[in-house]
Design a protein around this nucleic acid. Structure first.
Length: 649
RNA sequence: GCCGGAGUAGCUCAGCUGGCCAGAGCAACCGCCUUGUAAGCGGUAGGUCACGGGUUCGAAUCCCGUCUCCGGCUCCA
């Protein structure tokens, strides 16, 4: 048989040869390094960049090769995502094997590779709890198996055999998985991988043996519901990570440590931006500098909105529950609303602005000439989120949205959605954000006619295409009143958070009986677009802090410049300089401290400009400019300074 | 809400196999120094050891409960 290789050469091998035979034929070094075979599809070059694993285009080394099929031998070289996934998947099996030995009676469920490592979910025997103190013991057991280089042996079992065996082994989760494979996919046999004594239900592929994943580490333990269902058993999930080499593992752990330094909760405290108190859990207290940052963003949104034909409005905080019954929130989200009562009436703090804006629309009379009406409001919202979901500024109970609702005609719909997306990306560009776009379609629990959902989903898709955006579709993830486009960003540890959203809604106008008078002098139903671009200011600031690592560009920094007098006799000139820079956010460090000390503190506060003034500067009416992280830039006149501070970066 | 972990001064942490008045550094405050591009020196003050119960002659330390936070899961209009 002929085996074409990536370098263009072709290898002649006996018929029925496997990947292992090929590797051995090429050389003993490769035979040792080979992990698996990547099946190449010449029409799809992207399958060679380490993304093939999910497509099932990686096969075991001992699988027979096909005559004429181009392939590549997968080795653990740096940057190969497939090799990494394979090793992590390998070590997940070793983890399960080790846990079963150390904690007999444990029930195993699933253990896949994930973005930064792997996990395995276990149901430990009654009375056994696992925490990080147990990791050294488990890791030691795992090391033994890695060192032993136990072969991964793939076998096919009929589903009946496999179920029967797992029943005997008292592994009910495996039985359920196989039963579902039979029910949903009609499979007759399942793949079983054996390493040591451990037999796992698994599609594969795996390396030839357990000896390849030498650089691994268990990282954390957490609870996770079986099959992601909160009504089912809570399992214990052990997370770990693995790399091709110990150096890469070490680098990864160091990167994590660096990322933790960018954590917005830590920087928020260090930079004096915000704080939390047990007197109002899940709600930020904004300190002066944080408030400055917050207001800068609100101002930006306001300015950009004005340029795009939005008008700002203000609506109440507390509404009669009737409003939420009309909107449908009462039925769906009552548990997450803060409800109170007065004079026999039930009231609720608004968890969102839309019904208020609908009410505002309804209080007026519109004709087609008035549309589109674009109402924006930096609205204050309260949502009673579950305590376990709170997370710094990213998930809070009280927050403000850069919210807006557009009421328009069916004809205007497409342009308005397109413009809203343009607005969103214009905003993100100001910060250099790399945003992931998702289209979420009709959920199971929804209101409104199917025909309206068809139209809404089609309109959003058209707008995405008009903006030339790449996006992912999340089936069934839409809001209960309409489909949406969600814009996601990742935090410093890679967790994804929703920032912006553009949602299309035929339902609220119906429920609130909103109308406008058409050219035909007949009342028509407007269409409504919900959009928030930064999302919540709280979350946006959280992302912003981690994105910049606290080193805000000067236009955004709470304090743009700090004047540092060399000694006390320069304080008058320092104050004078600050006065001349009115309009900029400038502080003076009045402390009787050495200039070295003042510079150190200003650097730690991450202030973009430090303006050192001593005898020379007083004499020459200048300031010596030092840029944060960059150092001394030389002396500048006040005029030149103003010029530089006004420069966008 | 669920699983696991944690909570000591404003911050970072030590003490926690039960027993000297609970410690350190930084920050704060008071002096001295008057300073040229990342920490000048000395002193002072600051804590119902998250909260509430219990065990004990004795609890920051052990046990139970509550609250909050951290890592996940579920949820996220």
């Amino acid at each position: 048989m002929r085996v074409p290789l990536p370098d263009g050469s072709v290898r002649e091998l006996p018929d029925g040869s496997t990947g292992a035979d090929l590797a051995a034929d090429i050389g003993p070094g490769l035979a040792r390094a080979a992990l698996a075979i990547r099946v190449l599809d010449e029409s799809k070059t992207e399958q060679r960049d380490g993304t093939a694993y999910d497509d099932g285009r990686i096969v075991d080394l001992d699988a027979p090769l096909t005559d004429g099929q181009p392939i590549e031998i997968l080795t653990a070289k740096a940057g190969d995502g497939d090799a990494l996934k394979l090793l992590r998947h390998d070590i997940a099996h070793v983890l399960a094997e080790s846990v079963l030995e150390l904690y007999p009676g444990t029930k195993v469920s699933i253990g896949p590779p994930i973005a930064d490592g792997f996990y395995y979910d276990f149901d430990f025997p009654e009375g056994v709890t696992i925490n990080e103190d147990d990791f050294p013991k488990i890791e030691a057991q795992m090391k033994k198996h890695v060192k032993a280089a136990e072969p991964f042996v793939r076998t096919e079992e009929t589903t009946a055999e496999a179920i029967d065996r797992y029943l005997r082994e008292d592994q009910p989760y495996k039985v359920e998985l196989i039963e579902d494979l039979v029910t949903n996919q009609g499979v007759k046999t399942v793949g079983i991988y054996t390493n040591g004594e451990f037999k796992d239900l698994c599609r594969g592929p795996h390396a030839p043996d357990t000896g390849r994943a030498k650089a691994f580490k268990l990282t954390s333990v957490a609870g996770a519901y079986w099959r992601g269902d909160a009504n089912r058993q809570m399992l214990t999930r052990i997370y770990g990570t693995a790399f091709a080499t110990k150096d890469e593992l070490k680098e990864h752990l160091e990167r994590l440590e660096e990322a933790r330094k960018r954590d917005h909760r830590r920087l928020g405290r260090e930079l004096g931006l915000f704080a939390f108190s047990e007197t109002a859990t899940g709600s930020a207290f904004w300190l002066p500098h944080g408030t400055q940052l917050f207001n800068t963003l609100v101002g930006l949104s306001r300015e950009m909105g004005e340029q795009r034909g939005y008008t700002e409005v203000k609506t109440p905080q507390l509404f009669d529950s009737q409003l939420w019954k009309t909107s449908g929130h009462w039925d769906k989200y009552r548990d997450n609303m803060f409800v109170t009562e007065s004079e026999g009436k039930q009231l609720a703090l608004k968890p969102m602005n839309c019904p208020g804006h609908c009410q505002l629309y309804k209080l007026q009379k519109f004709s087609y000439r008035d549309l589109p009406v674009r109402y924006s409001e930096p609205g204050l919202l309260h949502r009673n989120e579950l305590s376990g979901t709170l997370h710094g500024l990213m998930r809070v109970r009280h927050f403000a949205q850069d919210d807006a609702h557009i009421f328009c005609t069916e004809d205007q719909l497409q342009d308005e959605v397109t413009a809203a997306l343009e607005f969103a990306f214009a905003t993100y560009r100001m910060f250099g954000f790399d945003v992931e776009v998702e289209l979420s379609t009709r959920p199971e629990q929804r209101i409104g006619a199917e025909e309206l959902w068809d139209r809404s989903e089609a309109a959003l898709e058209a707008a995405l295409q008009a903006n030339d955006l790449e996006y992912r579709v999340n089936e069934g993830d839409g809001a209960f009143y309409g489909p949406k486009i969600d814009l996601h960003m990742r935090d410093s540890l890679g967790r994804s958070w929703q920032l912006g959203t553009v949602q299309l809604d035929y339902n609220f106008p119906e429920r609130f009986e909103l109308t406008y008078t058409g050219a035909d002098n007949v009342e028509h139903r407007p269409v409504m677009i919900h959009r928030a671009l930064m999302g919540s200011y709280e979350r946006f600031i959280g992302i912003l802090i981690e994105h910049y690592g606290g080193d805000f560009p000067a236009w955004l920094a709470p304090v743009q410049a700090i004047v540092l007098p060399v000694s006390d006799r320069h304080i008058d000139y320092a104050n004078e300089l600050k006065a001349q820079l009115s309009g900029f956010r400038v502080e003076v460090d009045h402390r009787t401290e050495s200039i070295g000390r003042k510079i150190r503190d200003a650097e730690l506060r991450k202030i973009p400009y430090m303006l050192v003034v001593g005898d020379r500067e007083v004499e020459e009416r200048t300031a010596s400019v030092r840029r944060h992280k960059e150092g001394d830039q030389g002396a500048l006149s006040v005029e030149a300074l103003k010029e530089q501070l006004s420069q966008p970066e």
